[in-house]
C-alpha cells in the first residue's frame, strides 16, 4: 500500500468539466488531483469524438473536441494539477476529521477535504457482448483485459474483435497459449497495419487460427468454458474448443462504483442543489453530465458554470475562516499572479 496522498480536492473524471474545475478551484488556491479510468485527459471528447467539431463553446464558433481538451490543459497548467490515469475510484469514505478517503482500484489512496465527481456518463468499461449466459463465465473463463498472463498459459483462447486490443492480445498470448483463435466478423482489421501483418504471418504459419464470423453462443459447465459457437458468414455454425475467451467490443459508459457511495441518485444521475452543486453528502460535489437538477442541460457549457459555483463552496469548506472576495481575472493582480501573467 502506497502512502496516502493529502490534497484539498480530488476530482473524479478528467473530462472537460473536471479540467475546468481545476481552473476555478485554482483561482481560489485549492490544489487538485484528478483520477480517470482512461489513459489520457478529455473524457468523451478525447475517447469518443476527438475529431468532431463543437459549436456551442462561447467565443469559439467551432472547436474540435480534442482541441478543446488541449486548450483546457493549457489553461489549467499554472495550477499544476496532478493526474492519475488508468484508475477507477472504488471507494469514497468519510473520515473522522470530516475529510474523505478516496481509494482507487490501483491501490492509490487520497485524503481530500473536498471530492468533486465530474464523471460524465460514468466510467468507460469494456462492452459485454450480449451472448446468453456470458456473465457466468466472466472472471473465470471470459476476460476483457489481461491482469495476469499466467491465467492464459496453456489455455485454448478465443479472441473476438478486429481492433488493436484483439490483435495485440493475439500476438502476446500466442507464445504461451495452447491455441489462439482470432474471430472477427469480416476479413478486414482496423488495428495497426504492423499488427495485422504479424497476425497474418502467424496464421500463415499455422500458429494462430483465424475464423471469420460472429459469436452465437458459449458452451461449458458452471464457470468453465469449453467452447465458443461461431456463426460464419454463410450461416453455418462452428464450435471452437476454448477454455478462455476475450471479447473486444469497444467501450461503454457505466456509472460503476459511484452507485455504492450512498449518494442520492435520480435515474442513475447524482442529485445536486443548484447553488453549490453539492450532493446529498456535504463536501462531495457533482458537476457536468453526471449530475441532475431541475432544468439540467447536458452541455459542456453548463458544466463549466457548475464548476465555478462549486469552487466557491469548496473554498468555504477548505478555508472556513477566510473571507472570500469576488474578483475578475481581467483586473485582479492577485488572480493574474496565480495565472502567471503578472
Amino acid at each position: 500500500m502506497s502512502e496516502r496522498i493529502s490534497t484539498d480536492v480530488v476530482i473524479i473524471g478528467a473530462g472537460p468539466v473536471g479540467l475546468f474545475a481545476v481552473f476555478e478551484l485554482g483561482l481560489l488556491d485549492l490544489k487538485c488531483h484528478l483520477i480517470d479510468i482512461l489513459d489520457k485527459p478529455g473524457g468523451q471528447c478525447a475517447e469518443l469524438y476527438p475529431e468532431k467539431p463543437i459549436y456551442d463553446i462561447p467565443a469559439y464558433p467551432v472547436i474540435g473536441a480534442q482541441e478543446l481538451v488541449d486548450k483546457l490543459q493549457e489553461q489549467i497548467k499554472p495550477f499544476g494539477p496532478i493526474f492519475h490515469y488508468g484508475q477507477q475510484v472504488e471507494k469514497v469514505e468519510k473520515l473522522d476529521d470530516g475529510s474523505f478517503l478516496v481509494g482507487t482500484d490501483a491501490g492509490t489512496e487520497f485524503a481530500a477535504k473536498v471530492v468533486v465527481i465530474a464523471a460524465g456518463g460514468g466510467s468507460f468499461q469494456p462492452k459485454r457482448p450480449p451472448v446468453p449466459g456470458i456473465e457466468g463465465y466472466e472472471g473465470t473463463s471470459v476476460f476483457y483485459s489481461v491482469r495476469k498472463m499466467d491465467a492464459f498459459r496453456d489455455q485454448s483462447i478465443v479472441i473476438v474483435g478486429g481492433g488493436d486490443s484483439a490483435l495485440d492480445w493475439t500476438l502476446n498470448l500466442q507464445p504461451i497459449a495452447k491455441r489462439v483463435t482470432l474471430v472477427h466478423r469480416r476479413d478486414d482489421f482496423r488495428g495497426a497495419p504492423h499488427s495485422v501483418d504479424q497476425m497474418r504471418a502467424l496464421v500463415a504459419e499455422g500458429k494462430v487460427d483465424l475464423v471469420i464470423g460472429q459469436i452465437a453462443g458459449l458452451e461449458g459447465e458452471g464457470a468453465d468454458l469449453s467452447g465458443v459457437v461461431i456463426k460464419k458468414t454463410d450461416g453455418s455454425t462452428v464450435t471452437i474448443p476454448a477454455t478462455r475467451m476475450m471479447p473486444f467490443f469497444g467501450l461503454t459508459m457505466k456509472l460503476g462504483p459511484i452507485a455504492q457511495w450512498g449518494l442520492n441518485l435520480t435515474e442513475n444521475l447524482i442529485a445536486v442543489d443548484t447553488e453549490k452543486f453539492e450532493t446529498s453528502e456535504p463536501g462531495i460535489f457533482a458537476i457536468g453530465d453526471i449530475n441532475s437538477y431541475p432544468g439540467k442541460l447536458k452541455l459542456i457549457l453548463s458544466g463549466f458554470h457548475e464548476a465555478a459555483l462549486m469552487a466557491q463552496a469548496a473554498k468555504r469548506i477548505v478555508d472556513p475562516t477566510k473571507r472570500l472576495v469576488f474578483q475578475y481575472t481581467t483586473s485582479s493582480t492577485s488572480l493574474q499572479k496565480k495565472l502567471g501573467v503578472n
Binding site: P129, G162, G163, R185, R186, D188, F249, G250
Partner: peptide, 11 residues
C-alpha cells in the same frame, strides 16, 4: 462506420 459496426451485435 464499417469499423464501428465491429462493435455491434448480430451484424
Amino acid at each position: 462506420e464499417e469499423d464501428m459496426l465491429d462493435f455491434a451485435w448480430e451484424v
